[in-house]
């Protein structure tokens, strides 16, 4: 029995009929055609599917799309503005915070929230903050460097 939901994704509000059991990540990828959000483990371990739901980082494989009804979602596609990368995207590029790139959208979404809450994290706080995101290439060194670089770039401000 489909349910009608209205969700604002990256600033655009859309209304769709969805199956109640459609996951938020499936809604983003298959209904909204926003394939920047990846499905990794599909068991809420790896964090590849991390997006911001109502301003908070969430593993979108562990939320049904109907739960986002009336809410706002931000995905990696919504970060750049006017062709200018978000500082966290620029930092991942500058520090080469990726190898295969599969975990990168989730890493970036988690890291943005991390700096919003703690603008000057220590390396230990960064590693702890991204522990819900797994990099199968084990490229954590440069990922942590990227988050540090982004934090320095914001001058400790949000």
């Amino acid at each position: 029995m489909p349910t009608t939901i209205t969700v604002t994704v990256n600033g655009t509000t859309r209304t769709n009929e969805v199956d109640e059991r459609l996951l938020l990540v499936q809604y983003l990828r298959e209904v909204q055609n926003l394939t920047g959000t990846h499905i990794g483990c599909d068991t809420s371990n790896c964090g590849a599917c991390t997006v911001h739901l109502n301003g908070k980082a969430v593993k979108s494989c562990t939320v049904f799309a109907v739960q986002a009804d009336g809410g706002t979602v931000k995905t990696v596609e919504g970060l750049a503005s006017n062709g200018v990368m978000h500082p966290m995207q620029a930092a991942f590029k500058e520090k080469h915070g990726l190898q295969c790139g599969f975990c990168t959208p989730g890493m970036i979404m988690t890291s943005i929230e991390l700096l919003e809450r703690n603008p000057n994290p220590s390396e230990a706080e960064i590693r702890r903050g991204i522990r819900g995101n797994l990099c199968r290439c084990t490229g954590y060194h440069n990922i942590v460097e990227a988050v540090k670089f982004a934090a320095a770039g914001t001058g400790g401000k949000k």
Binding site: K56, A57, V58, K59, T110, I130, G132, N133
Partner: peptide, 9 residues
């Protein structure tokens, strides 16, 4: 508990 994303929800 778990990780930042899980603790958010």
């Amino acid at each position: 508990v778990a990780d930042a994303q899980v603790r958010n929800f």
